[in-house]
């Protein structure tokens, strides 16, 4: 029980209270409240009717939704499981064939997220609607497609990074970097349409944007029509790359471990 052995990066698991408990919902509601207060305050002047092309209510909707998305997109259960298992040479990762493991973990994690969705996300949304208005999605169908793609994409990232554990004992730091990017570069902390054009474009090409920025921009109608299709295509492309990349890495990794006498 040596504290120092906990990586600075893993301390977040300490804060991982069980989703769905009243305090967890309270914490989420607090963050939603903070977001809407911050963004309402930003749109303080009448001139700021549209910044980056988005109205105050659009921005608030966007930010409130990021706080809800975070409950699921920010969960690193898959990654942690893989990192832990692979380091220990555990049974779970030994038994399943790569195809099976990826599908298996995805199913598992989806189950957890369903629980989070029902018992944390929905209650948070319900309470939040008491004090903030969240508009309806501009193009619901496209939004749902994008959301699904983003969800699949986020799993792809986690599995990929998890598979890197085979090759790299210091993968924890890399995993933290990915998480930091996942927060800052994805449009979760600040929407991409606020940033300078060049920066926003670069970030939108990265996989992280596919988790928050793309689906949410579609939701508030900031992005529609062909641009939306392009966004979704990018998401799907990244998802494909990451899922197959993850598979390959995992295969290679297992061979490597077996060869080394794991």
């Amino acid at each position: 029980m040596r504290y120092i052995a906990f990586a600075w990066a893993e301390w977040r698991t300490r804060l991982a209270y069980r989703a769905g408990t009243p305090l967890a919902v309270l914490a989420s509601v607090f963050t939603v409240y903070a977001m809407q207060a911050i963004w309402k305050a930003l749109y303080h002047s009448p001139e700021m009717v549209r910044v980056g092309g988005v109205t105050a209510s659009g921005a608030v909707s966007y930010m409130v939704l990021t706080r809800l998305f975070v409950l699921i997109m920010d969960d690193t259960w898959t990654l942690r499981l893989m990192m832990g298992d692979i380091r220990r040479g555990d049974v779970v990762t030994k038994l399943a064939r790569p195809v099976d493991l990826q599908g298996l973990l995805f199913a598992h994690t989806a189950g957890r997220h369903l629980h989070t969705f029902l018992f944390q996300l929905l209650p948070t949304l319900a309470v939040s609607l008491l004090f903030v208005r969240v508009g309806a999605p501009r193009e619901p169908l496209r939004f749902l497609v994008s959301l699904t793609a983003g969800y699949v994409l986020s799993f792809g990232i986690q599995f990929c990074v998890g598979a890197l554990t085979f090759f790299w004992t210091q993968v924890g730091s890399f995993a933290t970097l990915i998480r930091v990017l996942g927060t800052l570069a994805s449009g979760a902390f600040v929407p991409l349409w606020v940033l300078p054009r060049g920066v926003a474009t670069v970030l939108s090409l990265l996989p992280f944007a596919g988790m928050y920025s793309t689906p949410l921009d579609i939701y508030i109608g900031q992005v529609h029509g062909p641009a939306a299709l392009w966004g979704v295509a990018l998401q799907v492309g990244w998802a494909a790359v990451l899922w197959s990349g993850g598979r390959v890495l995992y295969q290679l990794g297992r061979q490597r471990a077996a060869y080394a006498g794991g």
């Binding site: 300490r14 804060l15 305090l23 967890a24 607090f30 903070a34 305050a41």
Partner: peptide, 18 residues
Amino acid sequence: SPLFGVVYETLGEQFLLY
């Protein structure tokens, strides 16, 4: 943990940025 999460992460980190 739960209370810690609320106070530390939410109040302590997010709210205090502004």
